[in-house]
Amino acid sequence: MPANAFNGHTDLGIGLRVPHYRHILEKKPVCGWFEIISENFMVDGGRPLEVLDSILEQYRVVQHGVSMYFGNADPLNRDHVKKLKRLVKRTNTPWLSDHLCWGSVDGRCSHDLLPMPYTMSVAKHTAQKIKQASDFLEVPICVENVSSYAEFTQNEMTEWEFLNEVVEHADCGILLDVNNIYVSSENHRFDPFEYLRAMPHHRVGQIHIAGHQRFEHVILDTHDHPVPDPVWDLYAEAIRLSGNTATLLEWDDRIPSFDEVHAEALKANRYLHEHA
């Protein structure tokens, strides 16, 4: 999978969030594309789909999911992927992303992005499920590295070695979240640049940037602040290594005005021009 082969999408996008609906629909601001949370639109009717259809009339949309849970020991949820496929047909998303994590077992859902144990057997199991999902959905899949606050005693490899194994076995793309790399590197004391250098750069189809919150003993991936400088530094390196890549700013809590979020996203242009 060559670098940035995701249908020519290499510009900046913004996460579509409820507080901005009115502004976007009325003002129609210039924006490369919007990323939607798939689950918010996997419904059968009502305002969510009306809003989505209005957005689709004006903008390109890329789907990002939070509940595929490729790392679950359980098989893929059929009801979920069927609904997801209906949405894929509606949005014509050029690719679809979800997280490299697990989140439910025996039908009980945590609604969280729980960290994976980094072992070869788990990598192969996870890759197989990504392949199954991609085959069924008939759209390329990018898996996103998550922020984590805990590691398993069973780990046999680093997170980046695990990510490499998964994407090579699944032959899929990567949604590289540089904020998540930074958060995890601080929580687990590793060199985030080593993580970046070890990536299969040709598989990076999209990049996420976001802010976080630092507490006394841990950093949490809260998506409620502007992108801090260390994350911009990682972004610059990621662009240098992977080339000009579709980039998305996530801002999910204490959401400011659309213009403020847009201005924060546009800061990425500086790095794209300098490093690509």
Binding site: G15, F215, L220, D221
Partner: peptide
């Protein structure tokens, strides 16, 4: 009643 629920992936602090 007009809003959809947020389904993003950020941490709850």
């Amino acid at each position: 009643d007009a809003d959809v629920r947020s389904g993003a992936s950020q941490a709850m602090s």
